[in-house]
């Protein structure tokens, strides 16, 4: 079953000077897939991620995520949808510096109107433990390293058990060692929780570890590759070429 289905999605920015960023995007992402979205800057990949994240609406076309057509939802319903259905991991971890690590992880639960019940606090602690930061739990966010902050952001994204996690350059601000750890963690979560992942990256090494690589170029899908099917070498070659294969 498709977790995500995009049907002729267009996005045009600007009112007087119109810039079309996405052109008739059609794509399906099955449940549990770990997909990398790559492309040069300006290719429209961040725009696509924002549309998938219910943070923005397409100019035309339909986005269906888990049977829910996003264009039919009001602003408030979209907010609730983001809270319950999606997890976000951004390049700049975007944690709230006023709160501790544990409080940041609990934030999605609080946003949905929840209080401090033991069950959810235990779950948050379990997730922090899962990302290997039990000892840092009660520390203020800005006392943690970049890699640690990103792992807390992952724990936060997991709290409401989302069906879909969207990650925008999750390793972009990290050194390669912490980047690897974060990526491993994402893949483990993917196989443990059957969560669908879409990871935007321009790091080819990150992309190569994904189940599927989709390349955007000038607002259209240019390549759609499955390294596990066609092999690493072939994938590398495909990525090197400037020809579009879709």
């Amino acid at each position: 079953m498709a977790m995500i289905k995009l049907n002729k999605v267009n996005k045009i920015f600007g009112k007087e000077v119109k810039t079309q960023v996405l052109f008739d995007i059609d794509i399906e992402v099955p449940q549990e897939q770990f997909m990398a979205l790559i492309g040069p800057s300006g290719s429209g990949k961040s725009t696509l991620l924002n549309l998938l994240g219910a943070l923005d609406r397409p100019t035309s076309g339909d986005i269906i995520i888990g049977r829910q057509n996003l264009s039919l939802l009001s602003e408030n319903k979209l907010a609730d949808f983001r809270n319950r259905f999606l997890g976000f991991i951004f390049q700049f971890h975007y944690l709230l510096p006023e709160f501790t690590a544990l409080e940041n992880v609990l934030m999605p639960h609080w946003i949905s109107g929840g209080g401090n019940d033991h069950r959810i606090t235990r779950e948050a602690k379990r997730l922090i433990d899962r990302v290997g930061l039990s000892s840092q739990m009660h520390k203020r966010i800005n006392l943690l390293s970049g890699g640690q902050q990103q792992r807390i952001a992952i724990a936060r994204a997991l709290l409401n058990r989302p069906k879909l996690i969207l990650a925008d350059e999750p390793t972009g601000a990290l050194d390669s060692k912490s980047g690897d750890q974060v990526l491993e963690l994402l893949q483990e979560v993917n196989s443990e929780n059957h969560t669908t992942f879409i990871v935007v990256t321009h790091d080819r090494n990150v992309a190569m570890r994904a189940e599927r690589i989709v390349e955007l170029r000038d607002g259209i899908i240019c390549k759609d590759l499955k390294p596990s099917v066609i092999g690493t070498e072939r994938t590398m070659e495909e990525l090197e070429s400037h020809e579009c294969t879709v």
Binding site: G53, L55, E75, N76, A79, D80, F81, R82, N83, R84, F88, F90, Y94, L95, L96, P97, E98, M107, P108, I111, S112, R156
Partner: peptide, 16 residues
């Protein structure tokens, strides 16, 4: 604004 943006991304409503 960064914090408010992230709270909204996590599902905080406009009124909130």
């Amino acid at each position: 604004s960064k914090e408010i943006g992230i709270l909204k991304a996590m599902g905080a409503r406009t009124a909130s």
